[in-house]
Design a protein around this nucleic acid. Sequence first.
DNA 1: CCAATCCTGACTGAAACAGTAGTGTTTGGT
DNA 2: ACCAAACACTACTGTTTCAGTCAGGATTGG
Lengths: 144, 144
Amino acid sequence: MRLTAKSEYGLLAMIYLASSSEDGPVSAREISEQQEIPAKFLEQLFVGLRQAGLVSAVRGARGGFALAHAPENINVLAIVEALEGPLVATVCEGDRGLTCGRGGACAAAAVWNRATAALRDVFESATLAELVTAQDVIDSRPTV
Amino acid sequence: MRLTAKSEYGLLAMIYLASSSEDGPVSAREISEQQEIPAKFLEQLFVGLRQAGLVSAVRGARGGFALAHAPENINVLAIVEALEGPLVATVCEGDRGLTCGRGGACAAAAVWNRATAALRDVFESATLAELVTAQDVIDSRPTV
DNA sequence: CCAATCCTGACTGAAACAGTAGTGTTTGGT
DNA sequence: ACCAAACACTACTGTTTCAGTCAGGATTGG
């Protein structure tokens, strides 16, 4: 339930990958420069994205990263969870979940669970393909 | 967009207040003991709740706290914002909001905004009255 | 008067965040 | 064969936030 710079950078990187993967893999350095993301930090993010099976890596000179699936089949939830860990309520879990309220459940937990579900729904229904399209529209329209 | 123990404790305290405010104000010490919340920490939370106009305080001996409004008119969003500050997207704001994407807007921001809106909606539609009712149901049903 | 209670501010240990640094490994190009 | 470009891995660090504590002051019922 906590979103950090990892998600922000990671999503930007994935959008960039999705929109510029016509000719071979894209290097982390290029993404770093184009999206203004610290290079070494971005490298770490790709570790998570690769382990989650979202991107494939090509090592060596002229290497880089590419999406492992079609943009339509990659949603934001997968990216966020690859970088931040499972999306769960940060409150009312672990030991507290057993003690709050008298007995085994508390009304507060229901709210946190609803909140988590709502977040999950938003992230799950947002695909990379959609975001690339949206970004293209933004880019084609001159700044006001 | 970041929920901490403040919200957890604060909501538990408010639910407790709502369900046991028949005879005068309730002391922070009682809530602390009944809900297993560190006493001094709880006191700090009440500062925020009072400043937000959610509870009224009675000083001196036999003093304590009481809801400032009817439970039907207090929602979780108000409580959370009183304790954690405004509920905004923690990513893609401030300076970054102006630079990510080329020009003035990025597709990523749209997702974070949708997420924030979804959270806000959940918290806004959950009232204290509802939670008290839910808690009563839980309590009346013996633990399995 | 005094004990209970709220009020205020400073302080602290631990964890998380946001990187940085250094080194290794793989591979295309020459 | 060599070198530079690129990914891979580990460790380290300064800053901030979290969660809670500590010490005292102000107010009021009995």
